[in-house]
């Protein structure tokens, strides 16, 4: 067991962890942040995607012990300060970019990382960026639409 101190959604937390504890386990089991999901065991589905020091990271593929001093942001930290939905979250609701909601936290985190680097992506860039995030419900159509809308673009124009 070792001790790790990191910042999660702006709050500093210290936890005793095993060397093999993954970040996603720390979030879900250690901190009760169950918005981050586990959908596979080969780091492919992206349901566990969070931000570590501003970068998109699949939290199933990184040990918690490596994150001493890191800043982690999860879906629970994405809403506006007043609790209202952020622009990206609101776009997902407006565009019906989610159905069962299981992949959604990873999708929102992934979208946020994309728009931070590329504020006005093309449809192709959005689709390419989502390669590491699987959704089985929406067929991606409305997720792409939501991310385009969040970037202030109309997908219909971009699509044609």
């Amino acid at each position: 067991m070792s001790k790790v101190t990191l910042t999660v959604n702006g709050r500093t937390v210290t936890r005793e962890i095993e060397g093999r504890t993954l970040l996603v386990q720390l979030l879900r089991e250690g901190l009760g942040l169950t918005g981050t999901h586990v959908g596979c065991d080969t780091s492919q589905c992206g349901a566990c995607l969070v931000h570590v020091n501003g970068q998109a990271v699949k939290s199933c593929s990184i040990f918690a012990a490596e994150l001493e001093g890191a800043e982690v942001r999860t879906i629970e930290g994405m809403a506006n300060r007043d609790g209202s939905l952020s622009v990206i979250q609101q776009a997902f609701q407006d565009c019906h970019g989610l159905q069962c909601g299981f992949c959604t936290p990873g999708m929102v985190m992934s979208a946020a990382a994309l728009l931070q680097d590329n504020p006005r992506p093309t449809e192709a860039e959005v689709r390419h960026h989502l390669e590491g995030n699987l959704c089985r419900c929406t067929g991606y159509h409305n997720i792409v639409k939501a991310i385009m809308a969040a970037s202030g673009q109309d997908v219909a124009m971009a699509a044609e």
Binding site: L33, T34, G35, T36, T74, I75, E76, M78, A79, L85, Q89, F92, Q93, L98, G101, F102, T104, P105, V108
Partner: peptide, 10 residues
């Protein structure tokens, strides 16, 4: 239902 799913409260 989207609000809870989008904020990690599902």
């Amino acid at each position: 239902e989207d609000v809870r799913f989008l904020t990690g409260k599902g």
